[in-house]
Amino acid sequence: MEQTRKALLEMRNISVSFRMYGRGLEQTDLRVISDLHLTVYPGEIVAIAGSSGSGKSLLASAILGILPPNAAVRGDLQYKGEALTPERQKWIRGREIALVPQSVAYLDPLMKVGPQTDGYYKPTKKRRMLFERLQLPASVERLYPFQLSGGMARRVLVSTALVTGARLIIADEPTPGMSIEQALEALRMFREMADEGKSVILITHDIDLAVEFADRVAVFYAGTTVETAPASDFKAGPEALRHPYSKALWKALPQNGFEPIPGFQPYAGNLPEGCLFAPRCPYKTEQCEKQVPPMLEIRGGEARCFHGA
């Protein structure tokens, strides 16, 4: 079904690396995201779930073209079927693609919250409505960012993205700090947006949250998406999942066994040559250690595994 629809955003073999100086004078390229595949269709919420600090946020920056100058992006990035060039990124961000940033530090400390959320086009009425739905008192618009509590700031950040009316919202950890009702309301608003035909990329470390609210979940491991699956597969259990890591992750959750597999996620700079999961994989073969497996379509989802089933 999804294959017949036209993708809104398509990422193929995206890699992001940083030029870093090591000890002394040696210069190294630290690959933080490797060969990442992700397709976002209109009208859906796609969650990217993975541990914090593993480079998920950089993905958002890469799509928007706001990476620091010592970063380099390789791969194929398309928006509405056309390549997303730096010039197009500049035009598109804030208009077609909006970001819910991860940290309050993204707010201008010298600008009151109201005008700041309105931005250039001043949709004040719409913004007041958003504030009300997110339980932000009207007086908040006259406050400066430093006067906000953590949860309030998060809700302001969500409003800044929703108020733009963008086609695609990239929400980077939008809910921590909010109460349960507020978080649910924010996610409901994303849902409504998606039902209107827009799209949301929900970046989160909370797999339970991802499964609950997203249509599809991309499992992020060591800087790449190892599997993209309908959220329902995560509720169904390990048999419905495709990649050995997703299966192991499912079994390690506190509600299903709490049983870990040994080993650790490889970290940028010490990545294995072939499949990134090979060092811990029970099904690995010689091929896995030498070659990066392609993203394969399996049972209505995708997995980057030679033996996926």
Partner: peptide, 14 residues
């Protein structure tokens, strides 16, 4: 373990 992936969480807690 709030920042960690499910497997690391289970490893550490065990």
């Amino acid at each position: 373990s709030a920042m960690l992936d499910g497997i690391t969480q289970a490893q550490i807690w065990n």
